[in-house]
Write a protein that binds this DNA or RNA. Structure first.
Lengths: 132, 132
DNA sequence: AATAGAACCTCTAGTTACTAGAGGATCAAG
DNA sequence: CTTGATCCTCTAGTAACTAGAGGTTCTATT
């Protein structure tokens, strides 16, 4: 079986080296074996796990949520739909965030517009922002 | 002229007390005067500035961007449209974020659906997440 | 076998925007 | 003059990393 150095793992996963070490430190990635000279050595399973983590991160899951999802993979004595619930709650959070950002964008747009429609020499964005 | 204690300022601005002290520490809020017993005393201008900050925060501006906006208020020897540019850039950022979150929500939705359409006893969210 | 340079190690501290808590001082009212 | 609310400073913690110092190991070439 082939072993990877941390640099190779980083290249294969597109994850930075300090981040890999950080994930090991917070125990979201299993500890690596060590070479005689104390350098980390990884195998396939680490790569898989790391890709899983990065994919979840890209989906906006927190490391804590990811930890829960991993627990569900490892232990089978869970409600089979617990992962489902986590994903659904996260989806709800995301949809809510989109709504908030949208109304925020609307307000920003009108602020920006308030300047365009004005004289070219005086920008009243600051005074608009000052109105609470 | 009436002076406010930090607690009164907090109530009027709906900002927590440690946050007010924090804003003073990072010099985004001018230093308060002090009572004989070394307690902070504020006036109207502080309240206005604090409301401005909170409004900008609610719009998603970073403290650094807010600092820039404040500089623009204080010094008049700036391009009059610098504030405009900051707001426009921020609007762009927000719109981009919305797009990203939307495609993320789409993927999450299909992940969640992949379970609903399945047998009620096996949830395959984890295996879906594992496919990078 | 020696050496050079790339890659690795640990540890500390910094980032953003706060929040929490300890331990002690001050203020206003009765 | 005492009580209790409010205030003070200081340290440390949160999330998810990132950067840098100072030193070691690995690998390839001579």
């Amino acid at each position: 079986m082939l072993l990877l150095t941390i640099g190779q793992l980083a290249r294969l996963s597109h994850c930075k080296i300090p981040t890999i070490r950080y994930y090991e430190e917070i125990a979201i990635l299993p500890k690596a074996e060590r070479s005689e000279g104390n350098q980390r050595r990884y195998h396939e399973l680490h790569l898989q796990r790391l890709k899983f983590i990065l994919h979840c991160r890209a989906l906006g899951f927190s490391l804590d949520e990811i930890r829960q999802l991993i627990d569900l993979q490892v232990c089978t004595d869970h409600d089979p739909h617990e992962a489902h619930q986590i994903a659904e709650k996260h989806l709800k959070d995301v949809l809510l965030k989109i709504q908030q950002l949208q109304s925020l964008a609307d307000e920003l747009q009108s602020i920006v517009n308030s300047c365009n429609s004005d004289s070219p020499h005086r920008c009243n964005i600051l005074s608009v922002l000052n109105k609470s």
